[in-house]
Amino acid sequence: MLEARLEQAQILKKVVEAIKDLVQDCNFDCNDAGIQLQAMDNSHVALVSMKLGSEGFSPYRCDRNIALGINLNSLMKVLRAAANEDLLTLKAEDQPDSLNLLFESSSQDRLSEYDIKLMDIDQEHLGIPDTEYAATITLPSAEFQRICRDLSALSESVSIEANKDGVKFACSGDIGNGSVTLRPHTNVEDEDKSTKIELTEPVNLTFSLKYLVNFCKASSLSATVRLCLSNEVPLLVEYQMGAGYLRFYLAPKIGD
């Protein structure tokens, strides 16, 4: 059986809130290492990959591999009943028809219990290979969100050009064009406000802003975001969580 308690319900709330507009139904794959999720978005241009490691739960018990097929809108309806600071315990049998969620207020004077029905989802969990990227940019997640939001007002797509001097986000639309260039810098008072660029070769790729704006819904999970780019391969947008990550992969656009 599965029994997994999160110290704060808001971690799962934020994950589901961030991906529910991309993915409707998906399997939460549970094993002794933790809970993982991998799903393509409905239009098959983006891939979501999430891991909550067992060390992020206390206690964590999962005797055998269990796939929890969940409709994310249904899960969100239930999770909205949890306060951010509530303890959240997930429970499921080995061959479950439902997932049990228990919310406990931090003062332990309120217990809420919900069951949501599970569904059979034919979805294979495939290992995504570790990739060496030509450019890895770490920046404040709020900064990335702002850039995507601002440029999406002008255009459907953004080019991301990284070289040793900085990273330039540029777009061009009917009303004009715009760009934001970030130069690497270190904020000594708050490391999370730094911009870091690791580069083995310059890259320049174009992506759909609609998807990037959607990925930025995960910004509240982490103060920083990591963008990994190589020419002609999908962009990786990664938000680190305490004991895991939420990753989005987006295929680049190509010229006609």
Partner: peptide, 14 residues
């Protein structure tokens, strides 16, 4: 005119 590529071929997904 931009073309949006599908993600599946990059990861050998169906």
């Amino acid at each position: 005119e931009w073309l949006q590529q599908y993600i599946a071929p990059f990861f050998n997904l169906n």
